[in-house]
């Protein structure tokens, strides 16, 4: 576009962007227990690492600069636009903010936050009445909040892949799976048969596509 201002070292932007997304997530998860804080904290670490590379210090670009410059000699990899690596690697030449991966990332990130918000609404009501949350997103999957976090992280990986966030992703996903398992044991202890019936009919993370929810067995994991 126009004469490029510095694309990195924009630490106020790192801070503002991180805060916006962390407050956003906090708003729709309301961590209370130690387990809540662990999942929320891990997500926040992912967000801070991401925006540090996006606006602060492009570690991934530095590490891959030699390879990138040799394969894409015409690209200025220290511009912001080129940091949308997937768009560059797959040959998108126009403004990357309207490239396929960026649009897809919006769907994932927006979808993840909508899922978090809808799940929170149901969970909040259930917690107040001390009942099991089984409606809304909880009717399709047992752990919509963890699924929401994972969707948001996938979205950011599509939009702005970095080595650090790519390494963090599997670690965070396995952590969420473990936290979800522990949570299940606790809720099963509290709600007994009711939870067993719910868990038998509702997949943990991947909703069944179209099918009648009572007909198939739990094959989600």
């Amino acid at each position: 576009m126009n004469a490029s201002p510095p694309a990195y070292g924009l630490w106020p932007l790192v801070i503002i962007n991180s805060l916006v997304f962390i407050i956003f997530a906090f708003s729709f998860t309301k961590p209370r227990t130690a387990r809540d804080w662990r999942s929320f904290g891990a997500f926040s670490a992912f967000i801070v690492a991401l925006f540090t590379e996006m606006y602060g210090f492009p570690l991934t670009i530095y590490l891959l600069a030699g390879w990138l410059q040799s394969r894409y000699p015409g690209v200025d990899f220290f511009s912001h636009d080129a940091g949308h690596l997937l768009e560059v690697l797959f040959g998108w030449r126009a403004n990357p903010h309207f490239g396929p991966f960026h649009l897809l990332s919006f769907a994932f990130i927006g979808g993840g936050f909508i899922l978090l918000s809808n799940a929170w609404r149901v969970l909040y009501a259930a917690q107040r009445s001390h009942t099991l949350a089984t409606t809304g997103p909880y009717a399709r999957i047992r752990h919509p909040q963890y699924a929401g976090f994972v969707l948001i992280m996938i979205g950011f990986l599509l939009q702005w892949p970095t080595l650090v966030t790519l390494l963090m992703f599997p670690v965070l996903v396995s952590m969420y799976v473990r936290l979800a398992r522990r949570e299940e044991r606790e809720v099963a202890g509290e709600f007994g048969d009711e939870y067993a019936r719910y868990a038998a009919n509702t997949p943990a993370f991947f909703p069944r596509l179209g099918g009648d929810r009572s007909q198939r067995t739990n094959a989600s994991e």
Binding site: P5, L13, H80, H97, I109
Partner: peptide
Amino acid sequence: FLAIAAFFLLSEHRAH
């Protein structure tokens, strides 16, 4: 929130 997030993700390189 979604509107604010979209603003930051779309206007990022000029936002400063």
